[in-house]
Design a protein around this nucleic acid. Structure first.
Lengths: 170, 170
DNA sequence: AAACTAAGTCAACATGACTGACATAAATAA
DNA sequence: TTATTTATGTCAGTCATGTTGACTTAGTTT
């Protein structure tokens, strides 16, 4: 009773979308993976988890550990190991919160910023090529659809995250 | 010498794209993760790896182990454990290749097909909502850009994979 | 003073990747 | 026919990254 015919019009596009997203994401994360694999650190090597932390701390300088946890949606024990390595190797530094001294505000060091650039360069190049080829209208539309792919109850949080300008210091 | 100003016009969109793709993919895979977590199997539980195998075998009935490996881009040792569980629990069955008897052709059982449906239902619903909201033109454009996000040297292979109709048996 | 909160730590464990070595059977080349 | 290559499977060990649960320390709030 396997149905050879499509159930609804549009089902084929939906199936393609699922597969394309899988392949696109696979190649997208393979870029920084290569950079990470090249970097040989003294205390263990670095992986995707480190990349994500470096990315979000770079984008949100002075963020707290709790904020980082809520973005990554992992446990603090998982984060701890990764964060410890990044601090020990001088990619990230911590600062006591000026208002609430329990908080540890996170910042990239110069070394951390350089690494962040190296990691995101191939990803940026990938999207730059894409957007140049597709043109501004299709590019904006693409971003809008990516946004609508996110869980409805997460969109406000994501919007305030990605909307924030780089280095809000001023 | 951290630059406060944007380097190029369009850089902001590129940065947003990187983050949106992260969040969109995170929520996209969280859907089947819930289904997988609910399923309690006798010999250990099932994870994303099992989902991917079920998906691609479902999409390409009769595919060989080597083909599956080249899609997933993992080692055969990694695949082995996952595949063994799926066969042992009756989601997938193997068949000797009729031309080349060394090959093991992979098929979903009825149980496997049912599970595939349960896993992909929430993902399909997500894209159905998206495409209904965005309209056919933006939807097609979205697929085209997703495709161009894939590594250039992989696109032909992906195209022949996703272009293939379901159940090519006839 | 008591309770709560932010962060860190210790221990044990699960999943899903990896490498390297080796085994078996079938197909192909010498 | 014998030798080699190929498709698949397996054993053993390791690593990265996630989990739960219990507990500590320091600072804030009630």
């Amino acid at each position: 009773m396997t149905d050879i015919n499509k159930q609804h019009p549009g089902d084929d596009e939906i199936r393609q979308a699922i597969e394309l997203l899988f392949f696109a994401y696979r190649d997208f994360v393979a870029d920084p993976d290569k950079v990470l694999a090249d970097y040989e650190s003294p205390n263990g090597s670095l992986g995707r988890a480190h990349h994500r932390v470096i990315h979000f701390v770079g984008r949100n300088p002075g963020m707290t550990v709790a904020e980082l946890l809520s973005i990554l949606q992992i446990t603090k024990q998982s984060l701890a190991r990764v964060l410890r390595q990044l601090i020990d190797e001088g990619f990230i530094e911590q600062e006591r919160g000026p208002e609430d001294a329990r908080q540890r505000l996170l910042y990239l060091t110069a070394k951390g910023e350089a690494f962040e650039t190296a990691l995101s360069n191939p990803q940026r190049a990938r999207f730059r090529r894409l957007f140049e080829k597709a043109g501004p209208e299709a590019s904006r539309s693409f971003l809008a659809l990516l946004f609508d792919l996110i869980n409805e109850d997460e969109r406000d949080r994501v919007l305030s995250l990605i909307g924030r300008k780089q280095h809000a210091a001023s």
